[in-house]
Design a binder for these strands. Structure first.
Lengths: 208, 208
DNA sequence: CCTACCGATCGGTAGG
DNA sequence: CCTACCGATCGGTAGG
């Protein structure tokens, strides 16, 4: 039988996890720079020195969150792509998933996109996760192009265009740039679908 | 004859300006949250209390920078659009200018896109500047659509797609997300042109 | 994991 | 615009 944790005490629990969760909450409330070790410790119900048993310093904790977030996002994308039929649709699903993941996990998203935590020197796993995601994207584009589903643009530019579009939309949602238009997180998926459709068809009229 | 300023002294100079310039430098070096009033004062060569004669608090200084940046960006966009021939090209020039402005003025860009400084409650000019920019964009799209230059999408979605694309690209440059690909600021304009071209033509092949 | 502590830095104000 | 100051908070460590 599992002992119920005492309120605010993690003597026998998973303090590491509790600190990361507290940090996520803090990021959500105050942004990645509003996070402090002390406040995270406070919320986890431990003393201010305790976190340093689990993390070398505050950047180390943030990097763990970044990596966890990247892993979850990759898994989430893979899941959403699995049900699509062809390469183009998987590419698009990847973009839509980018936006919905961000809106559903704004704290992860913000940590993952804070430049100072993204330091590849500090942790090789970061590079690995980025490369993994990018190579799967390139594979998709290569396949789509070979099958004639997309035009013969430079794949690098296409990948970039797709990423900019969805990253930009995600950031606008997460940073509240769209709330003054009455657009909340429930609009994230339909809007992502709409803008990726435009990318697919192009602004210029087609005359069939 | 203008007296040359003594090094690090602004007794008779424009301290307000000097503080804003110092703040811009700080933002460029350490990000919008690395800025402090004291450090700005230090760099301007005055005591730590002096800035409060010119700005109520640190957010007030940041808001002034934000507004200044928005004004400059609007002027810059207008200039770059002036030489274009039709509405579609002006719309595109606006997007490209978004990216090049950001890359050339990363500190302004970062301040302008920091949610906590963007508070419309705190300064009505912020709302005004945003509306000004958005209405000119809508006018462009309306014109382009009437002339049959672009397809009959919902103008809101088109505006959003354009903004996401260029904002996303701008952020990626400014935050260094692209440096690992060997892409520096000199690639900003050509890439902005390339991705906006794809938005115009669409990913799907056209068969003329 | 706690207590107790260091040095550093900050935002902001009083009073001149 | 300066000096002098307040209270607050932080990151991190020593020693247990």
């Amino acid at each position: 039988m599992v002992e119920p944790k005492k309120k605010g005490r993690y003597h026998h629990g998973d303090l590491r996890r509790a600190l990361m969760d507290a940090a996520l909450d803090l990021v959500q409330e105050k942004g990645p720079h509003g996070f402090t070790m002390r406040e995270a410790a406070r919320r986890a119900g431990v003393s201010s020195g305790a976190p340093y048993k689990h993390f070398a310093d505050r950047d180390a904790l943030m990097r763990e969150l970044l990596i966890e977030g990247a892993e979850r996002m990759n898994a989430y994308m893979a899941e959403r792509m699995a049900s699509e039929e062809n390469a183009t649709q998987r590419f698009r699903a990847m973009g839509v998933a980018h936006v919905t993941f961000a809106v559903e996990n704004p704290a992860y998203f913000r940590v993952m996109n804070t430049p100072e935590f993204l330091d590849p020197e500090a942790d090789g796993r970061i590079v690995q996760l980025i490369e993994q995601s990018q190579s799967s994207m390139f594979d998709l584009l290569k396949e789509a192009r070979e099958k004639g589903e997309i035009a013969t643009y430079d794949p690098l530019i296409v990948a970039l265009a797709g990423q900019c579009l969805t990253y930009g939309l995600a950031r606008m949602f997460v940073d509240g740039h769209l709330s003054h238009l009455g657009l909340g997180s429930e609009h994230a998926e339909p809007l992502a679908i709409a803008v990726t459709e435009i990318l697919g068809l192009g602004l210029e009229p087609r005359d069939p």
